[in-house]
């Protein structure tokens, strides 16, 4: 009986997801298998030969790789939680029916993620130049005595990248929360209000649990986004000073296109990134209670 139901469900389910399964298999999985083979090869692109695990072993002694990996994880650990929390707070506020001009606020906060990269990097570099607005403001309120070298100091350059990603992607994540909030029945809040629950309590006891699927979604997609971070570093700091802000994705790109191509090594690093994402996603899925 139960088996029958599962079989029927499967059959109907395939009707719904087979177009996607076919498309993704052709567009991603086939190239992925090809790339996996490439990751065991080396040599000029038109004449590659099998080298076994050599590409994977090379990473351990490659300082650029190690720097890129530690930068990437630093961005992940510091930036993703800040951004998601901020996005959630903003979305909850923007969902308040009493608030006027919500459309304008939402559009304004969404705008950063559609700003073209060219202007975005130009603006960031101008604002955070030694004599830029950011330093002026900080010095005016006496938070700092001397201008911060945002772009040329290894530590502050990383901070700048984190600020930049947060600025650009908070509004983007806000959309998912806003849309997710609509799935929560208003009656639950009304009931809580009657019970005298404070707003903070409503937030932690109702909003967060109800938003769990979306929080999980944004956490995983942001993790993926950060591990594949390329645009910001490539445009604002070019990975510099030195390699202080470079990321794995930028290194993969450089190995494929900036330098004389070494596709084998580049794809090997890609698969290390994949493994890292899979592990992190599994942890998040587990923590998000997603096994059912």
């Amino acid at each position: 009986m139960k088996d029958n139901l599962a079989r029927r469900k499967n059959r109907m389910g395939w009707g719904f997801f087979s177009p996607s399964v076919i498309l993704i298999s052709v567009m991603v999985f086939i190239p992925m298998i090809y790339a996996l083979f490439t990751s065991f090869m080396a040599g000029p692109p038109v004449n590659m030969h099998w080298v076994g695990l050599q590409n994977y072993q090379a990473m351990f002694s490659d300082k650029t790789f190690l720097t890129a990996a530690s930068n990437t994880f630093l961005y992940l650990i510091v930036q993703v939680p800040i951004m998601l929390f901020l996005a959630m707070i903003i979305s909850v506020m923007l969902n308040d029916n009493r608030l006027k001009f919500r459309g304008l606020y939402r559009t304004a906060i969404f705008l950063p993620c559609i700003t073209s990269l060219v202007s975005y990097s130009l603006i960031m570099k101008t604002i955070f130049a030694p004599t830029g607005i950011a330093n002026k403001l900080l010095m005016d309120v006496h938070l700092i005595g001397a201008p911060i070298q945002w772009l040329t100091d290894p530590f502050w350059a990383k901070v700048l990248i984190i600020i930049s990603i947060t600025w650009r992607w908070t509004g983007y994540n806000m959309i998912f929360f806003l849309s997710g909030l609509q799935n929560i029945d208003t009656e639950i809040y009304e009931a809580a209000e009657i019970d005298g629950a404070s707003r903070w309590k409503q937030f932690t006891r109702i909003t967060i649990p109800m938003l769990k699927p979306i929080i999980l979604f944004t956490a995983i997609t942001s993790t993926i986004g950060t591990l594949q971070l390329f645009d910001e570093v490539n445009n604002i700091t070019k990975g510099g000073p030195g390699n202080a802000t470079t990321t794995l994705s930028q290194y993969i790109y450089n190995l494929s296109y900036k330098y004389t191509p070494n596709f084998g090594y580049a794809t090997a690093i890609s698969f290390v990134v994949v493994i890292a994402i899979v592990v992190l996603s599994l942890i998040q899925l587990k923590a998000g209670g997603e096994d059912k």
Partner: peptide, 28 residues
Amino acid sequence: IYHTKLSNRVFNTLLLSMMVPFAALMIP
């Protein structure tokens, strides 16, 4: 809606597809 163990596995496999950096897939 048609959630089964099998469909869940299919879904998890599909998730894998967004974890590969695009630069690695571009040439194939």
